[in-house]
């Protein structure tokens, strides 16, 4: 038997019509200005925070701790890479952009073309650690050796004093600030005019954890990543600026003293000088409580 329904009851169609109507209404409504500052989400103020994957766990830890400090504010955190965060800041979809590299000329120009002035805040420092499988006998490398490895001139571990194994190069995706920093300061040894590129054989992994996972189980692999991502089941390689130089392991002390050669600042960018909720949050981030979290997560506190 066909199921009987009262005549004229058509909830499905009604909902459909409403949905279509809503769609049409959305089509015809005038463009609203994109969200630039904290959006009221009900009673709750929401700070939208996006960008560097290197910083995402730091940003998450800050966001969680801040809930307790300012219960009326929610900080929503997304990764994706520094470029992602800055692009989103330019597109007006986030309030705070995390970046593990300074904003580029092109990005600043694009921002200014849209009438935005990106303001830079240094919120932490980070060392980039070179990691290999724990069984890999290689314990120290120079920057020129790393450059030769990553550009594909050295392809076997035996060429840098290791076992006779092919080298599997691991890198972060190109949208990562870590990738750009590594390209400029390691591959090109600080001279950005040099036409040196990552070897096309380089595996571009979508995330830090992708690199860690591969390094942990593949004795052929070499990877680089923020110090905060290094876990005890990987081996960190000591790095020297040049042949004969002192080989230094990354640590808070060696980064602060400048002895470790691959370290950089981590930034949060705002569109214009921060005000209101943003200002409060950034003030807290630079304070002692938030900077203690920085050290806890393996980054280097500022000041």
């Amino acid at each position: 038997m066909p199921t009987r329904r009262p005549p004229g009851s058509a909830p499905g169609w009604l909902i459909g019509l409403l949905a279509l109507a809503a769609l049409l209404a959305a089509c015809s409504s005038p463009p609203t200005p994109a969200a630039g500052t904290a959006q009221p989400g009900g009673e709750q103020l929401v700070l939208i925070n996006k960008g560097s994957d290197t910083m995402v766990n730091l940003a998450l830890a800050w966001a969680e701790a801040y809930e307790a400090v300012a219960p009326g504010v929610t900080v929503s955190v997304t990764g994706g890479g520094s470029g992602t965060g800055i692009a989103a800041l330019l597109n007006g979809t986030v309030d705070l952009a995390n970046a593990s590299r300074p904003i580029s000329e092109g990005e600043r120009a694009a921002a200014e073309a849209r009438g935005l002035i990106p303001v830079e805040h240094v919120v932490a420092r980070d060392a980039i650690a070179i990691v290999v499988h724990p069984d890999n006998p290689v314990a120290a490398l120079t920057l020129p050796q790393l450059s030769a490895m990553y550009s594909g001139q050295i392809t076997n571990w035996s060429q840098v004093g290791g076992e006779d194994r092919p080298i599997v190069l691991l890198s972060r995706e190109t949208n990562s600030g870590t990738h750009v920093y590594f390209l400029e300061h390691v591959l090109r040894l600080g001279d950005n005019e040099q036409p040196i590129f990552f070897s096309p054989e380089t595996l571009l992994l979508p995330s830090s954890e992708g690199i860690s996972a591969e390094v942990r189980q593949n004795p052929n692999a070499i990877g680089y990543d923020g110090l905060g991502y290094v876990t005890p089941d990987m081996k960190t390689v000591a790095v020297a600026r040049a042949e004969g130089g002192p080989f230094v392991l990354p640590a808070i002390a060696s980064v602060t003293s400048g002895a470790y050669p691959i370290a950089r600042d981590l930034y949060i960018y705002t569109a214009g000088e921060p005000t209101g909720t943003e200002e409060d949050y950034l003030g807290w981030v630079l304070g002692p409580a938030a900077q203690a979290i920085v050290a806890e997560l393996g980054f280097v506190p500022v000041e």
Binding site: G41, G42, Q44, K50, D53, V56, N57, L60, A63, E64, E67, T74, S76, V77, T78, G79, G80, L205, P206, S207, S208, E209, G210, S212, A213, G228, Y229, T231
Partner: peptide, 29 residues
């Protein structure tokens, strides 16, 4: 990536199981 509250309107971003699995299996150390 991470939203420590439930979305309260259809215009909010949201966490989702498949993306969360992608995130925690590739992005979180």
């Amino acid at each position: 990536f991470f939203l420590p509250r439930l979305p309260d309107s259809a215009l909010d971003p949201t966490m989702a199981l498949p993306y969360h699995l992608f995130v925690i299996s590739t992005q979180v150390p």
